[in-house]
Protein backbone atom coordinates (compact mmCIF):
# COMPACT_ATOMS: atom_id res chain seq x y z
CA UNK A 1 0.00 0.00 0.00
CA UNK A 2 0.99 3.63 -0.49
CA UNK A 3 0.30 6.31 2.12
CA UNK A 4 -2.19 9.02 1.24
CA UNK A 5 -1.07 12.62 1.88
CA UNK A 6 -3.30 12.67 4.94
CA UNK A 7 -1.67 9.51 6.29
CA UNK A 8 1.80 10.96 5.75
CA UNK A 9 0.69 13.90 7.88
CA UNK A 10 -1.17 11.85 10.50
CA UNK A 11 1.71 9.44 11.08
CA UNK A 12 4.61 11.83 10.43
CA UNK A 13 5.88 11.66 14.03
CA UNK A 14 6.06 7.88 13.68
CA UNK A 15 7.61 7.93 10.23
CA UNK A 16 10.52 10.10 11.32
CA UNK A 17 11.43 7.67 14.12
CA UNK A 18 14.21 5.38 12.87
CA UNK A 19 12.62 2.48 14.81
CA UNK A 20 9.25 2.93 13.09
CA UNK A 21 9.52 4.66 9.72
CA UNK A 22 7.12 4.13 6.84
CA UNK A 23 7.74 0.39 7.00
CA UNK A 24 6.81 0.17 10.67
CA UNK A 25 3.74 2.32 10.13
CA UNK A 26 2.58 -0.06 7.42
CA UNK A 27 3.01 -2.96 9.86
CA UNK A 28 0.80 -1.10 12.34
CA UNK A 29 -1.85 -0.49 9.69
CA UNK A 30 -1.82 -4.17 8.78
CA UNK A 31 -1.93 -5.40 12.41
CA UNK A 32 -4.94 -6.98 14.09
CA UNK A 33 -5.22 -6.61 17.85
CA UNK A 34 -7.94 -7.94 20.13
CA UNK A 35 -8.73 -6.05 23.32
CA UNK A 36 -10.55 -8.01 26.02
CA UNK A 37 -12.66 -5.54 27.97
CA UNK A 38 -13.84 -2.01 27.15
CA UNK A 39 -13.41 -0.76 30.69
CA UNK A 40 -10.67 1.06 32.57
CA UNK A 41 -7.81 -0.64 30.71
CA UNK A 42 -9.49 -1.35 27.37
CA UNK A 43 -10.37 2.33 26.86
CA UNK A 44 -6.83 3.79 26.94
CA UNK A 45 -5.39 0.74 25.18
CA UNK A 46 -7.84 1.10 22.29
CA UNK A 47 -7.53 4.88 22.26
CA UNK A 48 -3.73 4.82 21.81
CA UNK A 49 -3.73 1.89 19.39
CA UNK A 50 -6.28 3.78 17.29
CA UNK A 51 -4.19 6.93 17.36
CA UNK A 52 -1.15 4.87 16.37
CA UNK A 53 -2.99 3.53 13.33
CA UNK A 54 -3.36 -0.13 14.26
CA UNK A 55 -5.57 -1.13 11.34
CA UNK A 56 -7.92 -3.64 12.94
CA UNK A 57 -8.97 -3.50 16.58
CA UNK A 58 -11.41 -6.05 17.96
CA UNK A 59 -12.98 -5.28 21.30
CA UNK A 60 -15.14 -7.57 23.39
CA UNK A 61 -17.22 -6.68 26.47
CA UNK A 62 -20.77 -7.41 27.60
CA UNK A 63 -21.43 -4.32 29.74
CA UNK A 64 -23.23 -1.08 29.07
CA UNK A 65 -21.85 2.34 30.02
CA UNK A 66 -22.81 3.59 33.47
CA UNK A 67 -22.12 6.97 35.00
CA UNK A 68 -19.85 5.37 37.63
CA UNK A 69 -17.53 4.19 34.80
CA UNK A 70 -16.72 7.70 33.65
CA UNK A 71 -14.27 8.41 36.48
CA UNK A 72 -11.73 6.29 34.53
CA UNK A 73 -13.14 4.75 31.32
CA UNK A 74 -12.11 7.55 28.97
CA UNK A 75 -13.51 6.22 25.70
CA UNK A 76 -17.05 6.58 27.05
CA UNK A 77 -18.88 9.77 27.85
CA UNK A 78 -21.94 11.21 29.52
CA UNK A 79 -23.66 11.05 26.15
CA UNK A 80 -23.12 7.29 25.75
CA UNK A 81 -24.52 6.20 29.14
CA UNK A 82 -26.73 3.16 28.54
CA UNK A 83 -24.97 2.24 25.30
CA UNK A 84 -23.03 -1.04 25.04
CA UNK A 85 -19.42 -0.24 25.99
CA UNK A 86 -18.07 -1.78 22.78
CA UNK A 87 -20.32 0.50 20.66
CA UNK A 88 -19.39 3.56 22.69
CA UNK A 89 -15.67 2.72 22.35
CA UNK A 90 -15.98 2.03 18.61
CA UNK A 91 -17.56 5.45 18.11
CA UNK A 92 -14.71 7.14 19.99
CA UNK A 93 -11.88 5.22 18.32
CA UNK A 94 -13.21 5.65 14.78
CA UNK A 95 -13.78 9.35 15.39
CA UNK A 96 -10.13 9.67 16.41
CA UNK A 97 -8.85 7.77 13.39
CA UNK A 98 -10.94 6.69 10.40
CA UNK A 99 -8.08 4.42 9.24
CA UNK A 100 -8.97 2.03 12.03
CA UNK A 101 -11.56 -0.70 11.61
CA UNK A 102 -13.04 -1.37 15.04
CA UNK A 103 -14.86 -4.67 15.42
CA UNK A 104 -17.25 -4.38 18.36
CA UNK A 105 -18.31 -7.65 19.98
CA UNK A 106 -20.88 -7.39 22.74
CA UNK A 107 -20.64 -10.51 24.81
CA UNK A 108 -18.52 -12.46 27.21
CA UNK A 109 -15.68 -14.76 26.26
CA UNK A 110 -16.19 -18.36 27.33
CA UNK A 111 -14.56 -21.70 26.63
CA UNK A 112 -16.85 -22.31 23.66
CA UNK A 113 -16.41 -19.01 21.78
CA UNK A 114 -12.91 -17.79 22.63
CA UNK A 115 -11.01 -19.84 20.03
CA UNK A 116 -13.22 -18.53 17.26
CA UNK A 117 -12.80 -14.91 18.43
CA UNK A 118 -9.00 -15.08 18.90
CA UNK A 119 -8.17 -16.81 15.63
CA UNK A 120 -8.44 -13.62 13.54
CA UNK A 121 -5.97 -11.60 15.65
CA UNK A 122 -2.17 -11.31 15.87
CA UNK A 123 -1.99 -10.05 19.46
CA UNK A 124 -4.36 -10.16 22.45
CA UNK A 125 -4.49 -7.50 25.14
CA UNK A 126 -6.18 -8.41 28.38
CA UNK A 127 -7.95 -5.55 30.07
CA UNK A 128 -10.51 -7.72 31.81
CA UNK A 129 -11.44 -7.10 35.42
CA UNK A 130 -12.04 -10.64 36.61
CA UNK A 131 -10.09 -13.83 37.22
CA UNK A 132 -12.27 -16.24 35.20
CA UNK A 133 -11.66 -14.24 32.01
CA UNK A 134 -7.98 -13.66 32.81
CA UNK A 135 -7.28 -17.40 33.13
CA UNK A 136 -9.45 -18.32 30.16
CA UNK A 137 -7.63 -15.79 27.95
CA UNK A 138 -4.22 -16.99 29.19
CA UNK A 139 -4.99 -20.62 28.48
CA UNK A 140 -6.45 -19.88 25.03
CA UNK A 141 -3.42 -17.76 24.09
CA UNK A 142 -1.04 -20.53 25.22
CA UNK A 143 -2.96 -23.15 23.20
CA UNK A 144 -3.12 -20.87 20.13
CA UNK A 145 0.40 -19.43 20.59
CA UNK A 146 -0.87 -15.85 20.50
CA UNK A 147 1.19 -13.14 22.20
CA UNK A 148 -0.74 -11.77 25.17
CA UNK A 149 -0.24 -8.47 26.95
CA UNK A 150 -1.85 -8.69 30.35
CA UNK A 151 -2.65 -5.83 32.73
CA UNK A 152 -4.36 -5.54 36.09
CA UNK A 153 -5.26 -2.69 38.42
CA UNK A 154 -6.47 -2.34 42.00
CA UNK A 155 -6.66 0.76 44.20
CA UNK A 156 -3.28 2.48 43.58
CA UNK A 157 -1.34 -0.41 42.13
CA UNK A 158 -1.12 -1.89 38.67
CA UNK A 159 0.73 -4.70 36.90
CA UNK A 160 1.73 -5.41 33.32
CA UNK A 161 3.33 -8.45 31.75
CA UNK A 162 3.82 -9.75 28.21
CA UNK A 163 3.30 -13.42 27.52
CA UNK A 164 4.94 -15.01 24.48
CA UNK A 165 3.60 -18.57 24.80
CA UNK A 166 6.24 -21.33 24.93
CA UNK A 167 9.04 -18.70 24.73
CA UNK A 168 8.47 -16.98 28.04
CA UNK A 169 6.31 -17.38 31.12
CA UNK A 170 2.50 -17.49 31.08
CA UNK A 171 0.02 -16.20 33.62
CA UNK A 172 -0.19 -19.61 35.28
CA UNK A 173 3.61 -19.77 35.67
CA UNK A 174 3.10 -16.69 37.83
CA UNK A 175 -0.13 -17.60 39.63
CA UNK A 176 -1.03 -21.22 39.02
CA UNK A 177 -4.78 -20.91 39.61
CA UNK A 178 -7.32 -18.19 40.32
CA UNK A 179 -7.56 -17.26 44.01
CA UNK A 180 -10.61 -18.64 45.83
CA UNK A 181 -13.60 -16.32 45.29
CA UNK A 182 -13.79 -15.23 48.94
CA UNK A 183 -10.27 -13.74 48.82
CA UNK A 184 -11.01 -11.50 45.85
CA UNK A 185 -12.30 -8.06 46.83
CA UNK A 186 -15.94 -7.76 45.86
CA UNK A 187 -17.16 -5.00 43.54
CA UNK A 188 -18.21 -2.90 46.51
CA UNK A 189 -14.76 -3.03 48.11
CA UNK A 190 -12.66 -2.54 45.00
CA UNK A 191 -11.77 1.09 44.53
CA UNK A 192 -9.34 2.40 41.94
CA UNK A 193 -7.70 5.76 41.36
CA UNK A 194 -9.19 6.95 38.07
CA UNK A 195 -5.91 7.68 36.34
CA UNK A 196 -4.31 4.32 37.24
CA UNK A 197 -5.80 2.35 34.31
CA UNK A 198 -4.52 5.16 32.05
CA UNK A 199 -0.95 4.46 33.14
CA UNK A 200 -1.28 0.68 32.93
CA UNK A 201 -3.29 0.80 29.69
CA UNK A 202 -0.69 3.04 28.05
CA UNK A 203 2.00 0.54 29.07
CA UNK A 204 -0.02 -2.33 27.59
CA UNK A 205 -0.49 -0.39 24.34
CA UNK A 206 3.26 0.28 24.24
CA UNK A 207 4.01 -3.43 24.62
CA UNK A 208 1.62 -4.25 21.75
CA UNK A 209 3.19 -1.62 19.47
CA UNK A 210 6.68 -3.00 20.22
CA UNK A 211 5.53 -6.52 19.38
CA UNK A 212 4.02 -5.36 16.08
CA UNK A 213 7.12 -3.35 15.17
CA UNK A 214 9.54 -6.04 16.37
CA UNK A 215 11.45 -3.39 18.33
CA UNK A 216 12.78 -3.24 21.86
CA UNK A 217 12.35 -5.85 24.57
CA UNK A 218 8.87 -6.93 25.63
CA UNK A 219 8.09 -7.67 29.29
CA UNK A 220 8.77 -11.36 28.64
CA UNK A 221 9.51 -13.33 31.83
CA UNK A 222 8.93 -10.10 33.69
CA UNK A 223 6.14 -8.58 35.76
CA UNK A 224 6.15 -4.80 35.97
CA UNK A 225 4.51 -3.40 39.09
CA UNK A 226 3.55 0.25 39.38
CA UNK A 227 2.70 1.93 42.67
CA UNK A 228 0.99 5.26 42.11
CA UNK A 229 1.29 6.36 45.77
CA UNK A 230 5.07 6.12 45.83
CA UNK A 231 5.49 6.66 42.06
CA UNK A 232 7.62 3.57 41.76
CA UNK A 233 8.07 0.99 39.04
CA UNK A 234 9.40 -2.42 40.01
CA UNK A 235 10.34 -5.25 37.67
CA UNK A 236 10.03 -8.77 39.03
CA UNK A 237 11.58 -11.69 37.18
CA UNK A 238 9.09 -14.42 36.34
CA UNK A 239 10.86 -17.49 35.02
CA UNK A 240 8.93 -20.08 33.05
CA UNK A 241 7.66 -22.80 35.35
CA UNK A 242 8.53 -26.23 33.92
CA UNK A 243 5.67 -27.61 36.02
CA UNK A 244 3.17 -25.00 34.82
CA UNK A 245 -0.23 -26.69 34.43
CA UNK A 246 -0.77 -25.17 31.00
CA UNK A 247 2.59 -24.35 29.37
CA UNK A 248 4.87 -26.75 31.31
CA UNK A 249 6.43 -29.99 30.15
CA UNK A 250 3.56 -32.19 31.33
CA UNK A 251 0.52 -29.94 31.24
CA UNK A 252 -2.50 -31.00 33.30
CA UNK A 253 -4.77 -28.47 31.63
CA UNK A 254 -5.22 -29.48 28.02
CA UNK A 255 -8.58 -27.95 27.24
CA UNK A 256 -10.37 -24.69 27.99
CA UNK A 257 -12.67 -24.40 30.98
CA UNK A 258 -14.84 -21.69 32.53
CA UNK A 259 -14.12 -20.59 36.10
CA UNK A 260 -17.17 -18.45 36.68
CA UNK A 261 -18.62 -19.97 39.84
CA UNK A 262 -18.68 -17.74 42.88
CA UNK A 263 -16.98 -14.72 41.37
CA UNK A 264 -18.30 -11.23 41.24
CA UNK A 265 -19.07 -10.73 37.57
CA UNK A 266 -18.24 -7.05 37.37
Amino acid sequence: MEFTDLQVQRYSRHIILPEVGGKGQKKLLAAKVLIVGAGGLGCPVGYYLSAAGVGTIGIVDDDVVEVSNLQRQIAHSTGTIGMPKVESAKKTFEALNPDVNVIAMKGRLNKDNITDVLKDYDIVIDGSDNFPTRYLVNDACVFMRKPLVSGAILRFEGQVTTIIPHEGHCYRCLFEAPPPPGLVPSCQEAGVLGVLPGVIGALEATEALKLILGRGEPLKNTLLIYDALTTSFRKVKVPRNPDCPVCGQNPTITELADYDAGYCQR
Partner: peptide, 13 residues
Protein backbone atom coordinates in the same frame (compact mmCIF):
# COMPACT_ATOMS: atom_id res chain seq x y z
CA UNK B 1 8.98 20.83 7.94
CA UNK B 2 8.49 18.14 9.09
CA UNK B 3 6.92 16.85 5.83
CA UNK B 4 10.06 17.73 3.88
CA UNK B 5 12.03 15.14 5.87
CA UNK B 6 9.09 12.71 6.14
CA UNK B 7 8.82 12.59 2.33
CA UNK B 8 12.58 12.28 1.90
CA UNK B 9 12.72 9.45 4.46
CA UNK B 10 9.86 7.55 2.80
CA UNK B 11 11.65 7.85 -0.55
CA UNK B 12 14.88 6.50 1.00
CA UNK B 13 13.04 3.54 2.54
Amino acid sequence: CPYTFVKAKLAME
